[in-house]
Amino acid sequence: MAKEATDKVTIDLFQHQRRPGRPRTNPLTRAEQMKLNKRRQLKRDKERGLRRIELKVEESVYEALNERAETCGLSRSQLIEKLLTEALATETDKDI
């Protein structure tokens, strides 16, 4: 039986051929890489003085934040931080 280069039915004939694609450059698995990268990100954030806040909002609020952030040219996180800072500043002004 002749081996055709386009024949993908007889996979056993092609098992020793190198497959195209990006070669593996990191000895860690993808899950281990993600875990390590997340740990490094948290360390960088901590060094920059950033703290994590999580909150749940209605989908309509979420969509409104996304739209406003896009029009302002900010990330959603930056927009929320800006809104909270402004709200706290006006709150302080009212108290004085």
Rank of each mutant, 00 (worst) to 15 (best):
E91K: 08
I96S: 15
G73K: 01
C72A: 13
R22L: 08
R51M: 05
T10G: 09
Q33A: 10
E86N: 06
D45K: 11
E70K: 01
G49F: 01
E58T: 01
T92H: 06
R24C: 05
L36K: 14
K3S: 02
R51Y: 12
L79V: 02
A64S: 00
K35S: 14
R19V: 13
L88E: 04
R76K: 04
K43A: 11
A5T: 07
I53A: 12
T6Q: 05
D12E: 01
S77P: 04
P27T: 05
L88N: 00
L74M: 00
E4G: 13
E32S: 04
I80T: 01
G73I: 04
T85P: 13
K3A: 07
L13K: 03
E59N: 03
Q78F: 03
L28V: 08
L13H: 06
L83A: 06
L88M: 02
E70V: 06
S75M: 00
R18F: 08
D93V: 09
G49H: 03
G21T: 00
A5Q: 04
S75A: 00
N66D: 05
L50I: 04
R52E: 13
Q33L: 01
R76V: 10
T10V: 08
R51I: 07
T25D: 12
T10Q: 08
T29N: 09
E91Q: 06
S60G: 05
G49R: 05
E70R: 00
F14M: 05
S60R: 03
L65D: 06
